[in-house]
């Protein structure tokens, strides 16, 4: 009898310890995020990263998005913008950013823009600094809702209705760096991405795959790229004072 109680109790305490361990991990993650703070300083002799991203291999054939609702306004189909590649392979909508940078230029003063237009988000992808404001607007007569979520956990950041044409609203982004996936629940094909970083050294490739990151304090960094389908890649980059470095980055089509 007494042995029975003892055995059960020890099983129980093992379980209790496991619970405590899980809580412990959660707490340490928070501490880690809180410590990663960015320091603003004057950058007088910064370098420039002026590069391009090209897609190797043929972009896979993309079926047009079939519009399932509000066809009278949105049309029957919309071209899939996942791979936007120009004639020389330049890949648009890639976020290029530095890792391991803890001090440098000030945060952008202007809010981001995110426009609901022709039943799509524009731009498709963009970078942002933590806590930056985003101005969300609609050019459409149908109801949209702009619903950013933490891409990893799917946690809602906010969810704002854009009930009619010409409406706009400005909202702050989260205080923690994260990848944000924006959706419109009313039109399930609408997506956008915002990469939120704790520093302002990021850029998005233009239609020809070109990007520029300015005022980088001299040093060696990791340059990383992210594309919604082609994935991520990173490589070291050395930035010298007053110089321009021109990395050519390739991403393989998936």
């Amino acid at each position: 009898m007494l042995n029975g109680i003892g055995a059960a109790a020890s099983r129980h305490s093992v379980f209790a310890r496991a619970c405590v361990a899980v809580v412990g991990v959660g707490a340490s993650l928070v501490t880690h995020q809180a410590l990663a703070s960015y320091e603003v300083m004057a950058v007088t002799n910064g370098g420039t990263i002026d590069g391009s991203v090209t897609l190797t291999g043929a972009a896979p054939g993309q079926a047009a998005i079939k519009v399932s609702k509000n066809q009278d306004y949105c049309g029957q189909t919309i071209p899939d913008p996942a791979y936007t590649v120009d004639s020389s392979g330049g890949l648009a909508n890639v976020i290029v950013y530095l890792k391991d940078i803890t001090k440098g230029k000030a945060a952008p003063a202007e809010p981001l823009a995110l426009v609901n237009t022709k039943c799509m988000f524009s731009p498709r992808v963009q970078g942002a600094m933590v806590s930056q404001q985003v101005k969300i607007s609609s050019d459409d007569t149908v109801l949209h809702n702009t619903h950013p979520q933490n891409a990893e956990t799917n946690a809602t950041i906010f969810n704002v209705a854009l009930p009619f044409k010409g409406f706009s609203v400005t909202k702050p982004l989260p205080t923690m760096p994260m990848m944000i996936k924006v959706k419109c629940d009313a039109h399930e094909w609408m997506h956008a991405w915002i990469m939120e970083l704790d520093h302002p050294y990021y850029a998005t490739t233009s239609a020809d795959g070109h990007f520029t990151i300015k005022d980088v304090p001299p040093g060696t960094y990791t340059l990383a790229v992210w594309h919604e389908v082609a994935g991520e890649k990173s490589a070291p980059v050395v930035v010298a004072a007053g110089q321009t470095v021109k990395p050519k980055i390739t991403l393989a089509a998936k």
């Binding site: 809702n145 619903h147 906010f158 969810n159 209705a161 854009l162 009930p163 009619f164 609203v169 629940d185």
Partner: peptide, 15 residues
């Protein structure tokens, strides 16, 4: 306020 975690958005800014 909207219903956080669901598709129901806030209309506080428009209504």
């Amino acid at each position: 306020t909207g219903l956080a975690g669901t598709p129901m958005p806030t209309f506080a800014d428009s209504m």
